[in-house]
Design a protein around this nucleic acid. Structure first.
Lengths: 349, 349
DNA sequence: TTGTACGCGTTATCAC
DNA sequence: GTGATAACGCGTACAA
């Protein structure tokens, strides 16, 4: 078997490999890093020594000098309600997080790039993060920004950290981002609801101060207005199933005649379905429901949700590609790519 | 404002701080690392210099010498069906992954420990991973092992890498792990189904060769046998909603009289619900359904699923704690902690 | 083409 | 208590 070092021993270093191969450390390094200009003879010798010693390069030491880590960070920027943050649990359990990670990994994996997870809640944590990043902790970052007014995007650009946001920043700052045309998605929902003849159509929105959410609200309102619905009942939740259920209840008591509702994400839509069932309303016969995201929850719901498809995996993958090329070419101009949502018709509307 | 270095410049180093403070690098280091034995005067001076220069320690350089990274890796060990792995997409979208990450972060975050994500599919990748780990790439690892016979656990113990598995290893190897008493969970399901008077009870299992899955099968069989059901119809899926639907169909055609079914996870149970509805069976009146996991899908389903609660977040959190103390004290003996599942009664059974 | 020597930013071991 | 100085493991000008 290959002579890997016994456990607990000092691990073989490049120096050891060089000694075994009978060359200088520089030559060994060249061979291992695939630099041309090396005698095929020695090339052979070095690789043999690598095998015999069980050498594996120390990434830390390498990064220290190359200033490249082969790692990108996925940073979730949150507005720390409290130290014992109940929100984070919800966030990770939400299909959203997993879809993003899956999309990112699908491209990062191919490039042998690792993903490091960073959660920052306070401004102090944000400052420290940017400091670490400038120190080369990671080659770049993908940012998931939750708070309405997050200072992080600006800090990142000022620190000249290669970064790509998933979802546009609330404040206008010159940073790369990948986003969904949320307003168009909302318009699709409006089309569907009006098109099937609904007369009194309401909406359940997410927090009104986050961009993705406000875009869906304004997009829906605008499109509905264009169709003669100048005003629509609105209730807002926080993207959780429970909040969707509560919002649906309040909407129903305020407007018993409601026969259509657009819900800003699938999780809340599932909650709305529960409330409707409890109120004795059939879906879609009595009340039509359109969700948003096309997450796994949409398909699991009963009836399966008609929903606006949010190609999160693709968007995450694209953001990873964007970041990677941005890392390779620091002079790349900031860019953004906007995805068009589509409507997935199922049974709820 | 604090004089942080202009972007694009060389970042301030410990050397710079020392110069500004008028002390030696060694002293600056001591102050920053909170070592006692330093003149309060200088202490003050150094911190002032830190603020003025905007210094932030370089973690890489620090790790190189301390051999501590402040990072643990979450490694997902998979059996790479193909390079274009369709499974991974499913895996990340599954609530399972998010719940684990959430649980881990809840404790790692407090200790200021970062989480790095690692996916390994081939043995070569596994070898490289262990090499990097031994080189101090991370202080330890949390392992999510998917394949039936995964060489990784053994490789980790042989490499003396601090590690904790979530879910016991298939082959017996001396490694720390946190697991659920899957057999007991299955017994709870059997109790419920038999208890409510079901006569012909089937099961939809996961892949038969992974431990968590086989434990649920054997636990269910044993408990059913003890209640006079010496044989039960079995169909197996792969933990996805679609596979659950298919399995339910096949079960139904083979055993039209089925009036109860235990499904090895909630996602498949949701699929089963769909199949039952399509077959015109009412739940739970015609067929009672018990799921497993108590994931968000259970609550979203209709009817809401009676299911075996799998406290994944708690288990992940515990595994993180275990790993942290194992890292602190290398001599700690290998240990395992088994969680007891409970039954959550909702409407499906 | 190969080897020498220096630097990456820290911490740790010594003398003082 | 404090300050030189040697590691840590590696890449790479520069000289040969």
């Amino acid at each position: 078997m290959s002579g890997r070092a016994a456990a607990g021993q000092r691990l073989p270093t490049l120096e050891d490999v060089a000694r075994v191969a009978g060359v200088s450390r520089a030559t060994a390094s060249r061979v291992i890093n695939g630099i041309r200009n090396v005698d095929p003879q020695l090339h052979e010798l070095v690789w043999e020594a690598v095998g015999r010693t069980g050498y594996v390069p120390n990434r830390l030491a390498r990064s220290l000098v190359t200033r490249r880590t082969g790692t990108v960070a996925l940073v979730v920027s949150d507005s720390e309600t409290h130290d014992d943050d109940p929100f984070m649990g919800r966030f990770f359990a939400d299909p959203y997080f997993g879809r993003v990670v899956g999309g990112l990994m699908s491209v990062l994996r191919r490039s042998g790039v690792q993903l490091a997870l960073q959660i920052v809640g306070t401004d102090e944590q944000r400052t420290r993060l940017v400091g670490d990043l400038r120190n080369g902790q990671a080659d770049g970052v993908i940012v998931l920004s939750l708070p309405a007014h997050d200072p992080l995007p600006r800090m990142l650009t000022e620190g000249e950290v290669p970064a790509v946001m998933i979802g546009r920043p609330a404040d206008t700052v010159p940073i790369n981002y990948v986003d969904l045309a949320n307003d168009i998605g909302a318009a699709l929902a409006a089309d569907r609801l009006v098109g099937r003849g609904c007369q009194l159509i309401g909406m359940i929105s997410g927090p009104v101060d986050v961009p993705a959410s406000s875009d869906r609200i304004s997009g829906f309102r605008r499109s509905m207005a264009r169709r003669g619905h100048g005003w629509i009942p609105l209730a807002s939740g926080n993207f959780t199933q429970a909040s969707g259920e509560a919002a649906m209840c309040s909407l129903l008591t305020g407007h018993p005649g409601l026969d259509g509702v657009f819900v800003a994400n699938d999780l809340m839509a599932v909650g709305a379905l529960t409330a409707l069932r409890a109120a004795g309303r059939r879906v879609p016969q009595d009340v039509a429901v359109v969700g948003f995201d096309d997450s796994s929850a949409a398909l699991a719901a009963s009836p399966p949700l008609t929903t606006v498809r949010h190609p999160l995996e693709d968007m995450a993958a694209e953001s990873a590609r964007l970041l990677l090329s941005r890392i390779d070419d620091a002079s790349m101009r900031v860019s953004s790519v906007i995805y068009e949502p589509t409507l997935v018709i199922r049974e709820s509307a």
